[in-house]
Design a binder for these strands. Structure first.
Lengths: 130, 130
DNA sequence: ATAAAATAGCACCAAAATAGTGCCATACAA
DNA sequence: TTGTATGGCACTATTTTGGTGCTATTTTAT
């Protein structure tokens, strides 16, 4: 939600307060998340009055897969690595890998910009039009 | 894993003990899961000596989406219903719905039979060849 | 008949993941 | 130099999920 918000104000630095006021998110939590995204260079940050966050790239070049990776680690539906005790007898590891690849492709092929474009409710559009 | 196992023995009733011995799964847990699948008519069950479970349909006609629905409820990446307090200000609900639909399509288009076909490790193949 | 093999049901516990907070340090601009 | 804002990190709390205890009921081979 926050990235879509930033995408709607390209180039402008938006503070956590602004974002939270519009999107009704827990302030501290959003701050943590944006810190993570900043570390991952998904967003730029500036401090002090007038500071805040902005997308570090064009939203059209930011696939959801990248966002998911930053927030939750590698895209996968199961941890099928060597650490899994079931691996020796697992009949579906290879198949699940393929499913994961397909899902990853879905996330690769949708960007934050596209996510934002779909916004269609009046209340949401009102937020964007400010 | 269990459904792939059953798919490898079409028509035959397999007991929880047999499955667990081959797949090295916690017995009680698999029993719970198979009960759920039985209630959802994904598998047939028979009791008594020689009893067990078998797929209720051809594995080729059993998409993973159906399995996921039985085990985890409706396929979705977020609970965007009316119950969500963020809905009024959510910029991405519609977009996420589209992503969910795409992922659902992935799961619709892969069957338990296909999952099983991908099995390629020697140890796993040994289980199938018995 | 009856004992053994197996599922049915349901409550419960434990571990892991996730949502959310406390607290302080650091930077920046008016 | 003061107020605004991010940076970092540990911590708590809640939810979800993996897993268990126990008992009842059904089935079939002997």
């Amino acid at each position: 939600m926050a990235l879509a918000f930033l995408a709607s104000r390209p180039g402008a630095f938006c503070s956590v307060r602004e974002i939270v006021d519009d999107l009704k998110l827990p302030k501290r939590l959003l701050a943590e998340v944006l810190k993570d995204m900043s570390r991952a260079t998904l967003v730029d940050a500036t401090r002090g009055p007038g500071g805040g966050y902005r997308l570090a790239m064009d939203a059209k070049t930011l696939p959801l897969s990248r966002v998911v990776e930053v927030l939750e680690g590698p895209v996968s539906i199961a941890d099928c690595g060597d650490g899994c005790s079931l691996q020796p007898s697992c009949l579906i590891q290879t198949g699940l890998t393929q499913v994961t690849a397909s899902i990853r492709k879905v996330l690769d092929n949708m960007t934050v910009a596209e996510l934002l474009e779909q916004t269609d409710t009046p209340a949401a559009k009102a937020i964007l039009s400010v």
